[in-house]
Design a protein around this nucleic acid. Structure first.
Length: 622
DNA sequence: GTTATTGTAAACAAGC
DNA sequence: CGCTTGTTTACAATAA
C-alpha cells in the first residue's frame, strides 16, 4: 500500500500543495529523488559511500589489478559487484576491519618498498599506472575503513573522538610524499589510466571548478550538490571562491606563476600569461586526462584538508593546554561565521532579543562538512541520510551530549539533520543552560545555533518543537515572572526511554560478537552513564569510553573532552530538577572564559557573539 | 499485525 | 490584525 503512493500523502488538501514544494526541498537530502527507502538516493551517505568506492575508480583498477599481488578479496572487487555496504553486510565488523587493514598494509608495502615505484621517470615506466592504482586503492581502503569506523560508531559501540577518524588517513600523506604526488601527476599525464573511471562516473568538469570541487557529491547526488544552503553555500566545501578571486585578478592566473604552468605535473615554461592561456587551453583542455588529474588533485586537497583539520585541532589543544588564546584566526578550517555554542548559549540564554545567530554567510565562509565531517562526526550522523524516522534518540549508546560535543561543529556547519529526536534535542538544549530552563524562543535559538539544518524550514521544526514540548510529559512548563520557561523532568524523560543495553542481552551478545571487549565496555559505560546521569556526561565517561582498546585515542579528543568539561565543570549539575529562574542572568557571558578556548577554534575568530544576533533570513526556499 | 514512538501538518485559542 | 506561544488532533512512517 505504501509503495502505491510514491509521494508522502498529505492529509491536508490545499495546504499540501505549497508545503509539499517546500517539503520536497527539505527532504530532498534525506529521501532523494528515488523515493523513500532507497539509501542510494541519500546524498550524504552516498557521498561517503562513493568516497569509498568511486573516487578511486576501482573498476578501472580492476584491470590493472594483476600487477598488484594483493589477495583476492571482496574489497578489491568492483563496487558494481559489491558495494562497501554490501561488504559490510557480508563481513562482520572485525573481519572487515582486519581485511581493510591487511590490504592497506599490503598496498602500503607495495607502494613504499618497491624501488621501481620510485622511478623518477614514471612517464616511461610501465608501473606508473600501478602506483596510481595503489594510491587510489589506498584511498579507497582508508575511506572504507573510515566508513567502517563510522559504522561502528553508528552502532554506538565505538566512541570516536574528533580527529580519530583521520588517523588512518593520515598515514597516506606519509606514504605518498609530495614527490610521489608529483610523480603521480606525471603518470596521469603520461597515460590515461582512469579514463574508464571518469566515463563511468560521469564526471563532468565542463562547469569549471565549481563542479570539480564538489564532484564527490555531484556524482552521487546532484540534488544536494546543487542545493545551496539558505545563505547560498553549497553543502560541499568549495575553494572555488579562492580560485575565482585569483582568476579575476588581471594579469595573473592561479595556475600560472614564475613563468611556468603550475598545472600539476606540467611545469611548462610560458613567457607571458597569454602564452600560458594558450598552453592551458591546448595542453590542459577538458579531456579525460585533465579530468583525471583534477580528480587526483581533489584527493590531494581532501587529504590535506583532513590533515589541516587535525593539525588545527592539535594546535587548539596545545594552546588550550598552555592557556593561550589563538593569536590569529584560522581562515580555512574555521569559518568566521561560526559561533561558540557554549559562549552563545551563555550569552543568549536569557537575554533577548539576541539569540538567533547569523547563518553562515556565503560571502565569508564556505561550509566545510568534508573537512570536519568525516573526521569528526560519528556515524550516527549518517542516519540522516536514511529514512527520516531513523533518529538516534539515544536509544543505543550514543549519548546526544557526547555526540554533539564531538560533532557540534559539523552540525553547526553542515546542513545535515542531527540524528536525534526533537525531544532529545530540546532536552539537551535545556540541560545545557545553567538554570535548566529555556523559553521557547531560546530553544529555537539553540536549534538554529547548533544546527545548520534548523536554519531553514523554521515553520516545520518549530512547530515540531512546540508539539514535542506540549506532548511529552517530560517537558514541564513553568510560569515565570517574565513569562514561561520550559524545564525537563528528568524522571519523566528517563521513564519514556526504552530499556538500555543492560536489559537487552541480545544486543549485548551481538556487540560482543561484533567487537572487542573494549568497545563494548566503552559503549556500555557510555550507556550507563547516559542513563544514570540526567545531565551531561562527564568527561570521565568520555575518556573512559575513548580509552577502549579497540581504537586508539590520543590527545586528539581534547576538544570534545574539554568542551564537556566546560559544560559540566563550569556549571556543576544541580541536584534539584527544576529551579525556576526568577530573573534573567544577564552577566554570564564571561562566566566561562575557558569556553573560548575549549570549544572549537572559530570562537576566537568571533570578536563578539552579539554581532550574530540578527534575525535569520530563514524560509529562503522559494 | 499490533503497539509505541516520532515527525509533520494543521486547527485552534490565548495573549501581546 | 499579525505574531508568538501553547495545546490538541490527525496521519504517516518506522521500529520494536
Amino acid at each position: 500500500l505504501r509503495e502505491s503512493s510514491p509521494q508522502r500523502t498529505s492529509p491536508a488538501g490545499p495546504a499540501s500543495g505549497c508545503c509539499s514544494g517546500e517539503l520536497e526541498g527539505q527532504r530532498c537530502p534525506e529521501e532523494g529523488g528515488g523515493g523513500r527507502g532507497q539509501p542510494s538516493s541519500c546524498p550524504p551517505c552516498c557521498f561517503l559511500l562513493q568516497q569509498a568506492t568511486g573516487l578511486s575508480s576501482p573498476s578501472s583498477n580492476e584491470g590493472k589489478q594483476p600487477a598488484v599481488q594483493v589477495p583476492v578479496s571482496v574489497a578489491m572487487m568492483s563496487p558494481q559487484m559489491i558495494t562497501p555496504q554490501q561488504m559490510q553486510q557480508i563481513l562482520s565488523p572485525p573481519q572487515l576491519q582486519a581485511l581493510l587493514q591487511q590490504q592497506q598494509a599490503i598496498m602500503l608495502q607495495q607502494v613504499t618498498l618497491d624501488p621501481a615505484e620510485l622511478d623518477p621517470f614514471p612517464l616511461e615506466h610501465p608501473l606508473g599506472n600501478k602506483q596510481l592504482a595503489f594510491q587510489q586503492q589506498l584511498l579507497q581502503m582508508q575511506q572504507l575503513q573510515q566508513q567502517h569506523l563510522l559504522n561502528l560508531q553508528r552502532q554506538g559501540l565505538v566512541s570516536l573522538p574528533p580527529g580519530q577518524g583521520t588517523v588512518p588517513l593520515q598515514t597516506l600523506p606519509q606514504a605518498v610524499c609530495p614527490s610521489d604526488l608529483q610523480q603521480l601527476w606525471k603518470e596521469v599525464t603520461a597515460a590515461q589510466p582512469v579514463e574508464d573511471s571518469i566515463k563511468q562516473e560521469g564526471l563532468d568538469l565542463t562547469t569549471n571548478t565549481s563542479n570539480s570541487t564538489s564532484f564527490s557529491a555531484a556524482k552521487v547526488s546532484p540534488p544536494i550538490s546543487h542545493h545551496p544552503l539558505p545563505n547560498g553555500q553549497s553543502t560541499m566545501h568549495t575553494p572555488r571562491r579562492d580560485s575565482s578571486s585569483h582568476e579575476e585578478t588581471p594579469g595573473s592566473h592561479p595556475l600560472y606563476g614564475h613563468g611556468e604552468c603550475k598545472w600539476p605535473g606540467c611545469e611548462t615554461l610560458c613567457e607571458d600569461l597569454g602564452q600560458f592561456v594558450k598552453h592551458l587551453n591546448t595542453e590542459h583542455a577538458l579531456d579525460d586526462r585533465s579530468t583525471a588529474q583534477c580528480r587526483v588533485q581533489m584527493q590531494v586537497v581532501q587529504q590535506l584538508e583532513i590533515q589541516l583539520a587535525k593539525e588545527s585541532e592539535r594546535l587548539q589543544a596545545m594552546m588550550a593546554h598552555l592557556h593561550m588564546r589563538p593569536s590569529e584566526p584560522k581562515p580555512f578550517s574555521q569559518p568566521l561565521n561560526l559561533v561558540s555554542s557554549a559562549t552563545l548559549s551563555k550569552s543568549t540564554s536569557d537575554t533577548f532579543p539576541d539569540g538567533l545567530p547569523h547563518p553562515p554567510t556565503s560571502a565569508t565562509a564556505p561550509i566545510t562538512p568534508l573537512r570536519q565531517g568525516p573526521s569528526v562526526i560519528s556515524s550516527s550522523t549518517l542516519h540522516n541520510m536514511g529514512p527520516i524516522r531513523r533518529r538516534n534518540s539515544e536509544k543505543f549508546c550514543t549519548p546526544i551530549s557526547s555526540e554533539l560535543a564531538q560533532n557540534h561543529e559539523f552540525y553547526k556547519n553542515a546542513d545535515v539533520r542531527p540524528p536525534f529526536t526533537y525531544a532529545s534535542l530540546i532536552r539537551q538544549a535545556i540541560l545545557e543552560t545553567p538554570d535548566r530552563q529555556l523559553t521557547l524562543n531560546e530553544i529555537y535559538n539553540w536549534f538554529t545555533r547548533m544546527f545548520a539544518y534548523f536554519r531553514r524550514n523554521t515553520a516545520t521544526w518549530k512547530n515540531a518543537v512546540r508539539h514535542n514540548l506540549s506532548l511529552h510529559k517530560c517537558f514541564v512548563r513553568v510560569e515565570n515572572v517574565k513569562g514561561a520557561v520550559w524545564t525537563v523532568d528528568e524522571h519523566e524523560y528517563q521513564k519514556r526511554r526504552p530499556p538500555k543495553m543492560t536489559g537487552s542481552p541480545t544486543l549485548v551478545k551481538n556487540m560482543i560478537s561484533g567487537l572487542g571487549y573494549g568497545a563494548l565496555n566503552a559503549s556500555y559505560q557510555a550507556a550507563l552513564a547516559e542513563s544514570s546521569f540526567p545531565l551531561l556526561n562527564s568527561p570521565t565517561m568520555i575518556n573512559t569510553s575513548s580509552a577502549s582498546g579497540m581504537l586508539h585515542v590520543g590527545h586528539d579528543d581534547v576538544s570534545s573532552t574539554v568542551e564537556q568539561v566546560n559544560s559540566n565543570g563550569s556549571f556543576p549539575p544541580r541536584s534539584h530538577p527544576v529551579h525556576v529562574k526568577e530573573e534573567p542572568a544577564e552577566a554570564e557571558d564571561d562566566s566561562r572564559p575557558v569556553s573560548l578556548m575549549a570549544t572549537t577554534n572559530q570562537n576566537v575568530t568571533i570578536p563578539d557573539d552579539r554581532d550574530l544576533e540578527e534575525e535569520l533570513p530563514v524560509e529562503d526556499l522559494s
